Amino acid sequence: MNRRDVEGSSRKNADSAQDRDASANLYSPVIAAFKVFQQELDTKHDKYERLVKISRDITIESKRTIFLLHRVTSVPDAEDVLNEAHIKLDGVRQKIGQIAEELRGEDIYQFHRAFTPGIQEYVEAVSFLHYICHRSLISLEEINANLVFMRAEKVVAKDAAEALPLGTQVLTFQVTPSDYLLGVADLTGELMRMCISSVGNGDIDTPFQLSQFLRQIHDGFSYIGNTGPYEVSKKLHTLRQSLGKVEDACYTLRVRGSEIPKHMLADVFSSRTTLIDPEEGVV
């Protein structure tokens, strides 16, 4: 046997050994375990992305509801605006029902970062509507009470020949206390804009009501202090800015309200608000 034949034979033996190792690896318990892990991670990643998309839709619709509610101070018939806002929020709740379906049997905190922006925006919108209607702050329990969903599902029968009736399952979604606090903190900015809009339309009673209400919210957040979520302490600065603008508007109304004609109040307060914080526009 010459040298070339020896090299060819050794190469064939090496290839056959690699094939045997590859076939053995296919049935290795380690490889099988990692395939299971891969499927679990892929499933979790896909669910996370779906939740991000749903949260984005909730954020968009909630913002539209907030923009709609700001028209309450300028339209002659506010009931039409409020009814339309209720309809929009019903649609947002259906989106939250999709989140509840995705989280069925899952740990909510594994996916919390995926949908928390949308939930905070929803809390802001629903609390804004509640304040306009009742002049009070909606509670976390009231928000969660409206997040109960009925879903129809098929009941698996033991016998394939039997009919499969539809069963009804109750799904609930619970807004976390941190999301509630962050949504209420964002609400203060919308109330500040409502105050300026009300003054511009000649309503001099709403700013004083809002000032007292915002002061109560500020005092509540002050009690929380550093014991609450980290994001709450970050938004406390914005809350204080909103409260300062409302109190400044009330001060001007009390001191110079009789000197300024009502049709000029909008220009006066818009310019004063711009001087206080030129980076934040006024709706």
Rank of each mutant, 00 (worst) to 15 (best):
R4K: 15
V6T: 14
E7V: 15
E7T: 15
E7G: 10
S9D: 12
R11A: 15
N13M: 14
S16V: 14
A17C: 13
Q18Y: 15
Q18R: 15
D19H: 12
L26Y: 15
L26P: 05
P29M: 05
A32F: 02
F34E: 09
V36L: 11
F37R: 04
Q39W: 10
E40K: 13
E40D: 06
L41D: 06
T43W: 11
H45E: 06
D46Y: 10
D46S: 08
E49M: 11
R50N: 09
V52Y: 04
S55M: 01
R56G: 05
I58R: 09
T59V: 01
R64A: 13
L69M: 14
V72M: 04
V72L: 05
T73C: 08
T73Q: 13
V75C: 00
P76G: 01
D77A: 10
E79Q: 10
V81D: 06
V81C: 03
V81N: 10
N83K: 12
H86A: 07
K88C: 10
D90L: 07
G97C: 02
G97T: 00
Q98S: 09
Q98N: 10
E101V: 11
E102V: 04
L103I: 13
G105M: 08
E106F: 03
I108W: 11
Y109F: 14
Y109L: 11
F115Y: 14
T116D: 07
T116N: 07
I119H: 08
E121H: 03
E124H: 01
A125I: 05
V126H: 07
F128L: 14
F128W: 08
H130R: 02
Y131P: 00
I132G: 05
H134L: 03
R135V: 08
I138S: 04
E142N: 04
N144P: 01
N144M: 04
N146G: 04
